[in-house]
């Protein structure tokens, strides 16, 4: 019986088997193809000037998508993303003028976001409320807070924040550098550390994780807290970028953020996921929008194409399984 142990391991014909890219590999191919197509049909969109206009937005979307990815890995979905982004902008603006120190203001904003996010986590993990309901409610509460803080009008942001958002290093926008840093550190933590291992296990099967001696609650709460920090950071950058903090700043990032996660290939079934793939997908979605726009189509067509991309992206990963079942 022991002889069979590893003998069964040999695949039939490893040499001629067509290697399909893994679930997180597709997005790299698609993004490369998109830029190649852009270079041919609308060369204007891949010039350095237009790239450096596109990348800051892609970078902010990538940070949002990273936050959403880790929540989806815990079988959740964070609808409070929109209000959390707006809150990030408004709080940093308020604190920035009050404290007269950008560092303090940013630290304060991150702390507020982490607190609100952890509250989300407690509602979901402790009170067993469905994630979309808990975060939907939290979104309403936070919008109230934003409304109260801003008195319903866009707030000016401190100059320091504005110049930070527009700065670049050797021609690379700061927002992009920052977002790369964010994605890489999340990726390294989740792929290479004990925290990451446990994070994946808790997402894959919380009950088994508990029986295996993992602090499940801490991971679930921490995930929502970390996601909220991502959203708030994106919100601060966005406020700095457009020069004002407004109540609906986050609304335009909620659906594209979720879309980027889906297109990147993170499944909704929990456990597995890739923030890097989500980040690449954010670049893909942003560039796709710009390409469609450059070809003369309006925002409606852009929306339609995004919808088709989401369907295509998920279908392409499901198809092998469906075909196998049929066969």
């Amino acid at each position: 019986m022991k002889a069979q142990t590893f003998a069964a391991a040999a695949p039939q014909s490893p040499v001629f088997r067509l290697r399909l890219p893994g679930e997180f590999g597709w997005i790299w191919i698609a993004t490369a193809a998109l830029f190649a197509i852009s270079a041919i049909v609308a060369p204007g969109t891949v010039r350095p000037a237009s790239l450096s206009a596109m990348l800051p937005f892609a970078a902010m979307l990538a940070i949002v998508a990273a936050g959403q990815t880790i929540v989806i890995q815990q079988r959740g979905l964070d609808l409070s993303c929109a209000a959390m982004m707006s809150l990030g902008g408004v709080v940093v603006a308020k604190l920035g003028f009050a404290a007269d120190s950008m560092l303090l203001a940013v630290a304060g904003t991150v702390a507020v976001a982490a607190l609100c996010g952890s509250l989300n986590g407690l509602l979901v993990a402790r009170l067993n409320i469905m994630p979309i309901v808990a975060t939907l409610a939290m979104n309403a509460v936070l919008l109230g807070a934003v409304n109260m803080l801003s008195r319903g009008t866009p707030l000016a942001v401190p100059d320091a924040l504005e110049s930070f958002s527009h700065r670049d290093v050797l021609g690379v926008p700061w927002t992009l550098v920052l977002s790369l840093g964010f994605l890489l550190s999340i990726a390294v933590i989740s792929a290479r550390t004990l925290i990451g291992r446990r994070f994946v296990a808790v997402g894959a099967n919380p009950r088994a994780a508990r029986a295996a001696g993992m602090p499940v609650l801490a991971y679930q709460v921490g995930t929502y807290g970390a996601a909220a920090v991502c959203f708030a950071v994106a919100g601060m950058l966005y406020a700095g970028f457009i020069g004002s903090a407004s109540q609906n700043a986050g609304t335009d990032f909620l659906l594209p953020g979720i879309a980027a996660v889906v297109v990147g290939g993170t499944p909704f079934s929990g456990g597995r996921g890739s923030v890097i793939a989500s980040g690449v997908a954010a670049v893909f979605m942003t560039q796709l929008g710009i390409l469609v726009m450059a070809l003369g189509a309006g925002s409606a067509v852009q929306l339609l194409i995004q919808a088709l991309v989401i369907i295509a992206a998920t279908a392409v990963r499901e198809l092998p399984g469906i075909l196998r079942r049929k066969a």
């Binding site: 339609l304 995004q306 989401i310 279908a315 469906i322």
Partner: peptide, 30 residues
């Protein structure tokens, strides 16, 4: 079709139709 035969997650599928339907409305009446 998206959820049952294509087996997409209901949330993902209807997010896509959310965007698609909205796009059609906007094309018909900008």
């Amino acid at each position: 079709c998206l959820v049952v035969p294509l087996r997409l997650h209901p949330m993902v599928a209807t997010l896509a139709t959310y965007m698609g339907v909205q796009a059609v409305s906007l094309i018909l009446r900008p």
